[in-house]
Write a protein that binds this DNA or RNA. Structure first.
Lengths: 141, 141
DNA sequence: CTTGCTCATTAGAATCATTCTTATTTGATA
DNA sequence: TATCAAATAAGAATGATTCTAATGAGCAAG
């Protein structure tokens, strides 16, 4: 039974209301889209998928929902390279591997303690509250 | 005598010509600007500094020069958060610390072996040719 | 040298992602 | 059910970057 810190569609409502926010259909839809297919879509891709389910949703709302979910820490915004921001449901601490051939991004689970180990390289006076690790390369498939 | 892999204004010419490119005044100026003040400026900031020295230089040329220098691996493009790309002269392997209060970015030297250690978390079949580490937090100053 | 050719630069237009603005809608609360 | 704040929608506006087309510069062959 693996313990994850990933929000689920079920726990989303309480996360939102717990932050004084409303659990709207749009927010739930956007989260579900990220939750169902973990392929780090851009806002625009989320928008396309959302429209299939809710044709009246607007791109601005998708941006708003994503921003809200990031604030609530149930979704993570990821930026490597210039280019649109990509989003993933937060789950356990993980690094990202960016396959330069396919352009796709894979999550890499982090062994416990690695982030703390990495933080030890910081000089005195530097207090990190997050560490992001990005690999670039290719995968044999 | 510290051994670095940092290009210098002197070595730039041969790096460029070695790649079949010309060492133009614009390219040299852009590189010198990055080399002199290592504060991770944006293309627009480089442009402003460049104009002080060479009033006729254009923003497009600054973008072109930066891209060329990145291709030659004498300059590194850095992207965290959405927002403009920032540039630093390549020097030794280092991580970036992004101070969330001031918005400034500091280089963190990496102890030898750290990158290799971090790479060991990759599953079989993943071949990383680069690892980027980004800290976010605050500094006591 | 000087003609020709390729690489670079310039200026401005175009594009893309994102944010902003304003009006409308929704939903919880009194 | 009336009220009021929060959320959504649509499109305009912004900002960073890239593209396009024209001009300029430097080297190589004659």
């Amino acid at each position: 039974m693996s313990e994850t810190s990933t929000a689920t569609p079920e726990s989303l409502t309480q996360t939102l209301t717990g932050s004084g926010l409303r659990a709207t259909p749009q927010r739930e839809l956007v989260f579900n889209i990220l939750f169902e297919k973990r392929d780090h879509p851009t806002a625009d891709e989320v928008f396309t998928r959302a429209k299939a389910e809710m044709p009246t949703i607007s791109l601005a709302t998708v941006y708003n929902c994503l921003e809200t979910l990031v604030q609530c820490r149930v979704v993570r915004a990821v930026n490597f390279e210039r280019g649109p921001t990509r989003y993933c449901p937060n789950q356990r601490p993980h690094a990202h591997f960016h396959d330069e051939q396919t352009g796709s991004t894979h999550d890499i689970d982090l062994p416990p303690g690695l982030l703390d180990h990495v933080k030890t390289i910081l000089p005195t006076g530097y207090e990190a509250n997050s560490v992001e690790i990005i690999f670039r390369g290719k995968t044999q498939s």
